[in-house]
Design a protein around this nucleic acid. Structure first.
Lengths: 228, 228
DNA sequence: TTCATACTTCGATCGTAACCGAAGCATCGC
DNA sequence: GCGATGCTTCGGTTACGATCGAAGTATGAA
């Protein structure tokens, strides 16, 4: 047999609880230090160090030295998509963590996925962009229409600038809590950044969740209406 | 931390080489016996038995007793999609198996993914269906148009029949070799079945690949043209 | 220079899970 | 009934990897 790519390797990398916790934490988009990651993994720094080395060797993580700190991030968006899709699958099988806890609703409403918006709000945003004709969905891919480009420029997003990067402009990413797609790619990132810049929302320090201010909430819902 | 679903569990399930090989083999869509799966995993039947029990407990496999045989299949299409997406990811990282081998091209051209067509031909089929207006792509989802329903009836697919099943009619499934979506869901299954019934193609006994006859090839390409 | 912090490497321990041989059920064919 | 086949369960071995204490390296601060 032995057909196709080797999935056992990455399965094993994700299969350790400490590593899985680290990866999940990094899906929050922030770069974290080895010590912080040891904390989320519930292990000592030594152990974390070996885990992180393995994850990096496996191509899941990237690191950046800064002074005496070493900041770890997910290697790229593909890793984030993989983690999210595995979370979606796990949620569907009932492989949930024990405590839903009070943070859960906030997480489902709006959270960071690598560098863009996920959760109910993330899905709503993409739906609205498609419904308004700003984004075309063809097959698996998404593409920005002329109308969309104009609309986005109006709210202060420089699409031309985004196009110049090598990263795809639009990407769909499967949302584990909603089980539907939200917008990833450089455009997804730019949109989230603009919400944060405008003060509509802020990131929480210790969690993936994104908190909208009452005013930000109002603006967001107005900007991305759902007609249904 | 401990946010979100538990991905370590399924990661660990996929993370064992023997289990990963079994799962990859089952993505071929055929139901396999424990003894056959032991073969693909390169282990004895006893060991395979415990592996299979774990996979079933984890919700990845389903089994069906038939006489003194026990046939295993992937639990559902979601598992197949997960495996395919992990393969796509692994391929992107260069985590390839050692031998590309002579079977590889056939596998990339057309293969089974659970119960529908994948590979170049699978992707081409979906692209063509969308281009011809038979399928609408909205966000992450796919939906059959009226035109599509008519066209399909013409080639002998009873769409009404398919609708009565609880399984979604159209689903997009990310293809690991093409890195684009192909058509899954009950419609994807029905289309593949019809090709096999018509004698356009046949499955190979020991591999996931689907071999098209010269005539079948001609018919397929005519039925699903690519204008580009 | 000296001390403190952040992290890695080394060495050793320990637990778990993969593995197989042998025995135990179940089902089929005769 | 009997033996053969397909699979599971049991018991015991083995190996790998997760873990941490302790020591080593790098960077920054005083």
């Amino acid at each position: 047999m032995k057909e196709g790519p080797d999935i056992a390797q990455i399965g094993a990398l994700i299969g350790d609880p400490a590593r899985a916790n680290m990866l999940a934490a990094l899906t929050g988009g922030r770069a974290l230090t080895a010590t912080e990651l040891a904390g989320v993994g519930g292990i000592t720094v030594q152990t974390a160090s070996t885990h992180l080395a393995k994850l990096e060797a496996g191509g899941l993580l990237a690191q950046r030295k800064q002074g005496r700190h070493r900041y770890f991030t997910l290697a790229d968006e593909a890793v984030a998509r993989l983690i999210e899709s595995m979370m979606g699958f796990a949620a569907g099988r009932g492989h949930l963590r024990h405590q839903p806890g009070p943070k859960e609703p906030a997480l489902r409403k709006a959270r960071i996925c690598y560098d863009h918006l996920a959760g109910d709000y993330g899905v709503r945003m993409l739906d609205s962009l498609i419904a308004s004709g700003s984004i075309d969905a063809v097959g698996d891919g998404l593409s920005l229409t002329e109308k969309g480009e104009n609309d986005l420029e109006c709210i202060g997003i420089d699409v031309g600038d985004l196009r110049s990067s090598r990263r795809p402009l639009c990407r769909s990413c499967l949302d584990w809590s909603e089980r539907r797609a939200h917008l990833a790619g450089s455009l997804g990132k730019a949109l989230l950044s603009s919400f944060l810049d405008k003060g509509w929302a802020r990131r929480t320090p210790e969690s993936r969740s994104v908190l909208f201010t009452p005013e930000g909430d109002r603006q967001f819902l107005k900007l991305f209406p759902i007609d249904a």
